[in-house]
Each structure stands twice: as structure tokens, then as C-alpha cells.
Write a protein that binds this DNA or RNA. Structure first.
Length: 338
DNA sequence: AAAGCGGACAACCGCGCGCCG
DNA sequence: ACGGCGCGCGGTTGTCCGCTT
């Protein structure tokens, strides 16, 4: 036995909304407000062949007059990433901190752009840790022979992204070397295949080294974003051409985003996953209930009574300026922490 | 010029929760 | 205490549109 459908699907229109429908809905809501969505399309004079749920979505995600429809600013993107590292896929919670943005906006922007940006920087968009740290953590649970297999497997997974970054970095570097002061030389000094093979071997070598040296593993310690100690140090020392970007966005952080339109003044910083000492386990799961200081459960932005508990963990992103927190509850939590 | 492809965004779906009778 | 209803949320799908081949 399934759930009763919210409306008779045969009698309702689906798909894109027309301007006429938008007008009808907007003018009705302007007059009567948004109480009882199910009744809205049925009400006399409206003649909207839409289900109430569809009306609600159309209004909240598109027609509401306080919505922003333009592109996300760098500051907004940064806020999304930081909050996502704390609360995970709680889109409504994140959207509550971005005036004029809906959870759908934030979700879409995350899925289409931000996830890729982070991955391109070598950061796992789920845990907000560098991929290398994740591999290092996994490696601690493996016996030495398995570690080598891990290195191979990891290389397989991230090869394309690594090669993309490495190739770009190397070409840029070579252009700088051969033409200091000029940026438009299009010749590539040696064949792509040679470069690829060479790079792959170096990645293998350094990845194996990185995950086999236990003293560089961040065991039971908060992951430190600004010091790309651990694996990055090893990469730098082990091979001169291996950029730290793979281990930590430390060098790729602002510039890589700038390459995608962020610009030199971009608020994107090397602390993009800053202070997110979250492990996957520590991160608030999307379907978990949260509890406030009194042990009362809450869920979703609207129901939050006290968000302190969200931030009152090791996975706190206290480099979010408190003024940037629109929701007063968050701001209060922030100030209390200070 | 047209087909194919991928990105961006809008819309839908199903589930869980709170409220109320 | 229980069940129905309405709503919000997060995941998924559909559609449009611009770019590439």
C-alpha cells in the first residue's frame, strides 16, 4: 500500500510553467497568501491545472519576489562549501544562510559546479579532505602488500584529474621558463605521450611513498588545512615536479579557481576545506536528527532552535566571519564559540 | 547545417515529520 | 494512541540551450 498521491495525476498539468500560469499563481498568492497549497489551484478564478505541490515548488523556487536569479558570487560559493563541510547535504540549512537563494538553487549549484571544482582541486567533496589524506587514512588499515594495490587503484580513480592538473601546471611552468614575460607561446616542448608516461610513473612512486610512511599520517589528529604537512611534504620532497595540489589545494587553491573565473581577488582561499576536521563519520548526516544542548531533536532550517550543536564539534569552520551568518541563530552560535 | 553532447536549471517524486482531529 | 493531511526536504529526472564536431 503506497502513499496517497497528493493529487489526481490525470487532471493536472506537468512540466514547464507558462507565464500565464505564473501570473495566476503570483496574483493569487499576493492576495491570499500561501496557506494550504492543495487548495490554491482549486480555488475559484484561478483555473490552474496544477497540483498544490507543484504550485508550492514554483513559488518557493522561482516566483518568490525576494529570490536572486543571477549567478552565485564567490562569497556565496565559499559559504556553501564551508557550510557543506559542516552540515553535509542539508541544503535548506545552507540556503538559509544565503539570502535570496533556495535549497534547490544551492543543491543544483553544488551538483553542477562546486563538486567539480573541489574534485579538480584534489578535494573530496563529500568529506572535504584532500583525496591523498583519505587514501592515507585507508592505507593505515591495510597490510603493506595491499598498500601498493591501493596506490594503483587510487591512481586509476584519479588519473584523469591528476593528469589534467599536472599537464596544465607543467606547461605553464615550461612556458614561463622558455618565455619569461610572455604568456602566449603555444608550442609544447615534448610529446604528450612522453609527458603522460613520465607523470604517471612519478605519481605512482610518490603516492606509494606517501601512504607507506606512517609518521606522516594524521592519525587521530584534526586535519590541518593550512599546513599541508604529511603527504604534501613528502610529495614535495620526493619528487620535484609533483605539485602539492594533489595533496592539498595549498598551491592550487585560489589560482585554480581563478582559472575558472574567480579572479585574483577571489575569496576562495587555501582554506576552502579549512578547519574542516570532519571525518565522514563526524559529519552530520543528511537524515540524522540533530540535537540541541538540551537534547531536543531538531531537523531542517525552520525547526532549528539552537544550532550550537552543529558547530560545537571539532569540525567547526570558525573562519566564517560571524557577520556573514545571516541566520541569527548561527551568528549567536558563532559568537558563543569565540 | 545538423546531429551529438554536456551543462545548467527547473520540476517532479517519495519520504519523513509535525499538527490536528 | 492513532491515522490522515499538509508541508518541507533531499534525491532524481526532464528539458532547454549552447557548444562542439
Amino acid at each position: 500500500m503506497g502513499r496517497i498521491p497528493c493529487c489526481e495525476k490525470d487532471n493536472v498539468k506537468r512540466g514547464q510553467w507558462t507565464p500565464e500560469e505564473d501570473n495566476k499563481l503570483s496574483s493569487y498568492i499576493a492576495q491570499h497568501g500561501t496557506r494550504n497549497w492543495r487548495l490554491i489551484p482549486k480555488n475559484a478564478g484561478l483555473c490552474l491545472q496544477r497540483c498544490g505541490k507543484s504550485c508550492r515548488l514554483r513559488w518557493t523556487n522561482y516566483l518568490r519576489p525576494d529570490l536572486k536569479h543571477g549567478q552565485f558570487s564567490d562569497a556565496e560559493e565559499q559559504t556553501i562549501v564551508k557550510l557543506h563541510s559542516v552540515v553535509g547535504n542539508r541544503w535548506s540549512l545552507i540556503a538559509a544562510q544565503l539570502p535570496g537563494r533556495t535549497d534547490n538553487d544551492v543543491k543544483n549549484h553544488w551538483n553542477t559546479k562546486l563538486k567539480k571544482k573541489l574534485s579538480g582541486m584534489g578535494i573530496d567533496p563529500v568529506t572535504h579532505k584532500p583525496f591523498s589524506h583519505l587514501m592515507a587514512e585507508i592505507a593505515t588499515t591495510l597490510a603493506p602488500p595491499q598498500v601498493a594495490h591501493l596506490a594503483e587503484a587510487a591512481l586509476g580513480c584519479f588519473k584523469d584529474e591528476m593528469l589534467h592538473l599536472l599537464t596544465k601546471k607543467r606547461i605553464d611552468f615550461q612556458l614561463q621558463q622558455s618565455n619569461p614575460g610572455q604568456g602566449n607561446n603555444t608550442t609544447v616542448p615534448y610529446s604528450k605521450q612522453d609527458e603522460k608516461d613520465d607523470t604517471v610513473e612519478k605519481i605512482k612512486l610518490n603516492l606509494s611513498r606517501a601512504i607507506q610512511e606512517p609518521d606522516m599520517l594524521p592519525l587521530n589528529k584534526p586535519w590541518e588545512s593550512t599546513s599541508t604537512r604529511a603527504t604534501s611534504a613528502n610529495f614535495e620532497g620526493g619528487c620535484g615536479v609533483f605539485p602539492t595540489s594533489v595533496t592539498g589545494y595549498h598551491h592550487y587553491g585560489p589560482s585554480s579557481f581563478a582559472n575558472e573565473g574567480g579572479g585574483s581577488g577571489s575569496p576562495w582561499s587555501q582554506s576552502m576545506c579549512t578547519g574542516s576536521t570532519c571525518t565522514a563519520g563526524e559529519q552530520v548526516r543528511s537524515h540524522e536528527k540533530l540535537k540541541d544542548e538540551n537534547g531536543e531533536e531538531f531537523q531542517g532550517g525552520k525547526e532549528i532552535k539552537n544550532a550550537t550543536s552543529i558547530f560545537n564539534t571539532d569540525c567547526v569552520l570558525w573562519d566564517i566571519p560571524s557577520d556573514d551568518l545571516i541566520n541569527p541563530i548561527y551568528r549567536e552560535a558563532f559568537n558563543n564559540k569565540e
